[in-house]
Every structure is written in structure tokens, then in C-alpha cells.
Design a protein around this nucleic acid. Structure first.
Lengths: 195, 195
DNA sequence: AATATAAATGAATGTTCATTCACTTATAAA
DNA sequence: TTTATAAGTGAATGAACATTCATTTATATT
């Protein structure tokens, strides 16, 4: 018996995400992917049932990692400002470390493919965030509001800023990381909207 | 001489955007589009040089309309709160009226296709927004900040909320419009972040 | 009414696509 | 060392793709 080559699967996954980010979903054909990963097209089908299965696996993996990183050191018991700032930092860390994975994730979520994927937001993650919001309201740190308003106010500016920087990267061929001081400064302004 | 059928071109454009929103860029093939618009594939090539040209025309058209609607009644001379609220209302009006066009626009902007398009943000629009920011700072209505921070704070929450509602629409098959009171309430919170 | 012209077409064209298959190769277990 | 098994392959398959082309059709101009 011969074992699957973990390195090979990793390469297939990474090249697929890179190709999708650079050339779009149509730009990632199975044959082009095979060539980029130095394998036979048939090899991809050992690891993934088909193209759709591959894409869903990629999405699942990124979502799992992203959720994990976002919640690193987090607890709903943290006070509002500390907890939200921690999450901003965690998220930015992931985006800086894995820009292709993040951009693939965004592209997938914003495409109709997401409708054919039976993927759910990690339970743990959702529960944590809900509890965090409830606690903050109960402590009187923020006023009561609908979850979608909370989410829009708390993360809308963050993701908008990230988008700016990732677009610059695409245009100039290199990645301008968001400076921590700029992020903190904007965070302080966002916090005001909850007061 | 036979004239071009304006109605026919409009139908091609609208069906193309609808297909892209519903099935993604790969889901919109020239032959499927022809069938949806009740024309021959060759007819599409009378109106557009090729597929890429069609997509770029669609993008240009939506951008032009969107910019126009967004600036309706706007002037950089307006005070900060009035001007920003006007733009929020204008933008939401466009999104509610033309959800497919808006979603196509977003999908295009978030895809690598945008890199191959030589389209620029309408000059007039850019200049207006820049002047608006400058004026608000000079009047002491908001503190001085980089344009990308301003943009992220002023529009990040708005677009995040829009995304929420458009996703709900996709899932349930119908469109839940954002209530004006909910929008105004969030707007008031956003304003605080500039104080 | 005749004519010139551009719109509009359906049936091709050659290409690329996702996927399969008969086959070879590497290696864990015996 | 042998053997069973699953990894890995290159070439093939049929479907779908963007685009073209030889014709036909509608109409504005004469």
C-alpha cells in the first residue's frame, strides 16, 4: 500500500486558491491546476471527488482556520472593547499571513457557488459571538441592537480597510500591510459609534 | 438599412447580469445568454466585440448609473452629516431599484476581471468626494484622516448591512429591503465615530 | 416599388473543459 | 523477498465553450 502524499495535496490546494485569486474561478481549470501542481489531472481526482468538491473543501478549510485564528485568546467574558480589538488583530494576522486564502474565501462567499455549498458557519464561532454581544449589552457597555447592525458597525470598517489594502496589492504586485497604529486609530473611532 | 433594436440590446445586458448574479461568471456562457435573450449567439456579437467587451460595457454602464444616482442632490458644500446621509439614501435607492445590477457590479469589482478592465472611477465622482472630505475637515466637523479611513468608517457599515440583506434575499428567494428607520439608526451611530 | 445596407440568423469551427480509464509504480504488510 | 493495494499516470472522451460565416431578413432611403 502506498500512502497519499500530503505535500502533494497541499500543493494542489494552494495552487488552486492562488489561481482563483489571480484569474477567477473560470481561470482555474483542472488541467491548468494539474500542470501548476506538477501532477496528472487524474491525480486531483484521487484527492477530490470533482471540481465542486475541491472548491468546497478549500472553502471549508479556510473557514475553519479563519474561525480558529479569529477566536485565539477570545472569550465572551472579555469586555467589549478588549474583545473586539482582539478579534480585529486576530483577523488581520490571518489576512496578512494567508492573503491568497483570505481572498479566495471572500471570492467564494461573494459568488453564487456559496449557495451550492452546504457549509455552515462554525457553530462554536457563532455561539461565541452571540454571547459576546449579549454580555456587552447586559454590562451596559453598548446599547441593545440587532446582530446585523452590531456586525456591520463592528466589522464593516475593518473589512473595508482590508479591501483597500488588498486591492492596492493586486495593482502594484506587492502587499502593503496595514500598519498596527493605523488600525488602532480607526478602531478607536469605531468604538465611539457604540457609546 | 435596418436599425439596431434597442430593446434587444437592453435584454441581452439585463439577462447577462441576472445570469452572472445567479450562476457566477462561468454560468454565463454566450450560448446560454443567447437562449435567455431569445437571440442567436451571433447577434450578441453585433452589439459587443466579444465576451470580455460585453462584461466591460456592463460594468461601465452600472458604474455610470450608480455614480449618477449616488450624487443626486449632492454637493461638497453640504455639511458632513447631511451630505453623508444623502449619499447613504441615494445608494440604497439604487440598490433597491436594481439589485441585479448592483450585485453584478460588486461581483465584477471583487473579481480579477477588474484588473483587465481599463475602467476608472468617474472623475467627477472622485473629485466631489475628495472636496467633501476636505471641506468637512476645514469646517472642523470631523478630524483630519486619510481618505481610506474616512471611506472605511463612512461606508463600511453601510455596505456590510447591504450585504446582509442581499444574502438573505438569495437564500429565501425574495428581497428584504432595509427599513429606512433601521438605516437612519445605524447612520446615527456611524456619525458618532467621527466626533 | 426598387435597392442598398446593416441587422439578424443557425449551423458550423476549432478549442478547452471536466472527467474517466487502462495501465504503471511505489510501498506497507506479509 | 514477495505480494497486495492504493497512489499516480497520460491519453482519451464527449460536452460545452467562444467565435465566425454564408445566408436571410427587415427597413430606411431612393
Amino acid at each position: 500500500m502506498r500512502n497519499k502524499d500530503e505535500h502533494k495535496e497541499r500543493l494542489i490546494r494552494d495552487k488552486a486558491m492562488e489561481m482563483i485569486v489571480k484569474e477567477g474561478f473560470d481561470g482555474m481549470s483542472m488541467q491548468k491546476l494539474a500542470k501548476a501542481a506538477n501532477v496528472s489531472p487524474a491525480t486531483i481526482y484521487i484527492y477530490f471527488k470533482n471540481r465542486e468538491d475541491l472548491l468546497n473543501h478549500l472553502y471549508n478549510e479556510v473557514q475553519a482556520t479563519f474561525s480558529e485564528v479569529a477566536l485565539k485568546g477570545f472569550s465572551p467574558a472579555l469586555n467589549f472593547e478588549t474583545g473586539l480589538w482582539l478579534q480585529w488583530q486576530n483577523r488581520l494576522r490571518f489576512i496578512n499571513a494567508f492573503p491568497y486564502q483570505y481572498q479566495f474565501y471572500e471570492q467564494f462567499r461573494n459568488s453564487p457557488l456559496i449557495n451550492h455549498s452546504d457549509v455552515q458557519l462554525i457553530m462554536d464561532f457563532k455561539a461565541n459571538m452571540k454571547q459576546f454581544l449579549t454580555n456587552a449589552v447586559e454590562r451596559g457597555e453598548i446599547k441593545k441592537m440587532e446582530p446585523e447592525i452590531f456586525w456591520s458597525l463592528a466589522y464593516g470598517p475593518f473589512y473595508a480597510l482590508v479591501k483597500f489594502h488588498l486591492q492596492e496589492k493586486t495593482m502594484l504586485g506587492r502587499h502593503f500591510k496595514i500598519s498596527p497604529s493605523k488600525l488602532k486609530s480607526m478602531f478607536n473611532q469605531v468604538i465611539k459609534s457604540f457609546q
